[in-house]
């Protein structure tokens, strides 16, 4: 009865096969990357078929490379590309291969991608416009806040003065030059009255880093 099994060769097995220690030392040499062949390889027979194949292969390879070598630029519409590679693009367009996009997943159609990109591009200015509006709004809000502060200060001064100054109030109302809406001079130059008012608010909110 024999049992079959594959096994890697141990030193004992090699000895048993007739490989002596001298032989095993001899095989320790590193083998050259391109070992010299025992005989010179036979020359390839030149014929018409082989020549045809070589010429066609080179032509096919260069043609395909010419068409596809830079797939990203195929539909590029950047200004620099148009200017710098106008002639090349014209040449490429002549060679351009129409892809069978109907046979592919929709995500591979670059034209679809471009549409999406355009949409997103058109969305960016809207966002910017919104941002600008928000800035305007905050500016307006600040102005309004200042005005309110001015009103509050004036109101508190008036409350402190009492009802004796009613005539003055009436006078203020009657005088169109002292009206808040028309007194640009008064609004333009800050008299420094509310200098500490903002600081108090800032302290309430905590330090700003």
């Amino acid at each position: 009865m024999y049992s079959f099994r594959n096994s890697s060769l141990t030193k004992e097995q090699l000895n048993n096969l007739g490989v002596t220690s001298k032989d095993s030392n001899a095989t320790q040499f590193t083998r050259p990357l391109f070992p010299i062949l025992a005989s010179k390889p036979s020359e390839i027979e030149k014929n018409v078929g082989l020549d045809y194949k070589m010429v066609w292969k080179e032509d096919f390879r260069s043609r395909l490379f010419e068409i596809h070598s830079n797939p990203t630029n195929q539909n590029s519409d950047s200004y620099s590309f148009k200017i710098a590679n106008a002639l090349e693009k014209e040449h490429k367009q002549k060679l351009q291969l129409k892809f069978a996009y109907s046979q592919m997943p929709a995500e591979l159609n670059i034209q679809n991608l471009r549409k999406r990109v355009n949409k997103s591009k058109s969305a960016i200015p809207n966002k910017k416009r919104k941002m600008l509006k928000m800035e305007d709004v905050t500016k307006e809000l600040e102005i309004l806040e200042k005005k309110e502060n001015l009103h509050d200060d004036e109101g508190s001064e008036k409350a402190a003065d009492g009802s004796d100054d009613e005539g003055e109030i009436e006078g203020d109302v009657e005088d169109p030059e002292l009206d808040d809406e028309t007194d640009y001079h008064n609004n333009y130059f800050d008299n420094g009255e509310n200098y500490f008012a903002d600081e108090d608010d800032a302290l309430d909110d905590g330090p700003v880093y």
Binding site: T72, L97, F99, A100, Q103, M104, E107, L108, I110, L113
Partner: peptide, 15 residues
């Protein structure tokens, strides 16, 4: 690579 580059390359490979 960008999505456009990969999509273009895959389109060539599928073609």
């Amino acid at each position: 690579l960008s999505k456009k580059q990969v999509a273009a390359s895959l389109a060539i490979l599928v073609q």
